[in-house]
């Protein structure tokens, strides 16, 4: 294809997105669009899968049968999200094995929030309330993103995440209405999860490298800082209902801006965790790699069995 032809295709492509048309797997797309989407969707899928670990950590210790069942269901939902995000990503011409390989070798990233440890039962509530709350704010605009399979997956993901968020809040509310020990547990969880949750929106706008292109492709509708502000504004009144204190002395309502002002994020910590040196980065990847390696004989057996079955079926067909 000549440069002119490619340029022509690109113009048609950009015009389709501008008209809010969906791009589907078999449509022509610029290589950069494909690569950017593979990066973002696989990163999103990896986040779901790695995110199962810190919550899975409390399944065996959940304090009641009702909470155990709810946590199992939640982690199962996350595995489901991982499954259809991987499938959406596969439509762009990458295999699941390749994506796993990228995760296991550190080439692909996942949400840094899951590199923090879950130390008490209240962390389950805090993750639902704050982490899923932040994820929803990041993800709702993606329900209208330009790539069809991703947009459709996100509609389902967002519905379930919003249920998880309410469930997390309700779980914390129960603690906050409980004994002083329980309320302290909730406060301690908020202390540890607040700042990492704010970091989930990524670097400040002047440091964010992908924003402009992502806006054009509707992978992003608002900037990192706008989304972060939305999260703070939404969450502060909820903390007031819970009766626990957000660990930020600079947090206050700004009448003029119509928003909450908040303190400075520790970006050194953010970059440290992103670069693989957070409290649990190594443990999370070790767990994923170990599950994959220990499962190799199982996957090989399934392939061997399927081949034998196929051969048997062929022989049967020949005989009849």
């Amino acid at each position: 294809m000549s440069e002119k032809e490619i340029k022509n295709l690109e113009e048609i492509f950009e015009a389709r997105i501008a008209r809010d048309e969906k791009i589907e797997p078999k449509d022509w797309m610029p290589e950069k669009y494909r690569k950017t989407h593979i990066r973002q969707i696989s990163q999103h899928a990896h986040s779901e899968i790695v995110g199962m670990l810190p919550e899975g950590n409390w399944i065996t210790r959940a304090p009641s049968l009702r909470r155990k069942a709810a946590l199992l269901a939640k982690v199962q939902d996350e595995a489901g999200h991982g499954l259809y995000l991987y499938s959406a990503c596969e439509t762009l011409g990458i295999s699941r094995e390749e994506m796993y390989e990228q995760l296991h070798t550190g080439k692909a990233k996942y949400s840094s929030i899951f590199n923090y440890p879950t130390l008490t039962w209240a962390d389950m509530g805090a993750i639902g309330w704050l982490v899923d709350g932040a994820a929803i704010i990041n993800q709702v605009p993606l329900c209208n993103t330009s790539y069809g399979p991703y947009a459709r997956a996100m509609i389902r993901v967002c519905k379930e995440e919003s249920f998880h968020q309410r469930q997390g809040f309700e779980s914390l509310l129960t603690l906050c209405k409980g004994t002083p020990d329980q309320k302290n547990m909730a406060q301690d969880a908020l202390n540890r999860w607040w700042w990492p949750s704010l970091m989930m929106f990524g670097p400040t706008d002047d440091e964010s490298t992908h924003t402009e292109q992502s806006m054009k492709w509707k992978l992003k509708r608002k900037t990192n800082d706008e989304l972060r502000q939305q999260f703070v504004d939404q969450t502060v009144p909820q903390a007031e209902i819970l009766g626990i204190t957000i660990p930020d002395p600079d947090l206050k309502w700004n009448e003029e801006r119509g928003h909450y002002d908040f303190g400075k994020i520790n970006w050194d910590e953010f970059w440290q965790v992103v670069k693989g040196h957070g409290p649990c980065n190594k443990q999370r990847i070790k767990d994923r790699v170990s599950a994959w390696e220990k499962g190799a004989w199982v996957r090989d057996a399934a392939i061997a069995y399927a081949e034998k079955q196929e051969k048997r079926n062929q022989e049967e067909r020949k005989a009849s």
Partner: peptide, 19 residues
């Protein structure tokens, strides 16, 4: 079975075990 969540040989078996 709850001990296994996130540690299975594949995503599909993980989902089934949790279920």
């Amino acid at each position: 079975l709850g001990e296994l969540c996130g540690h299975g040989p594949s995503l599909e078996t993980d989902i089934a075990g949790t279920n």
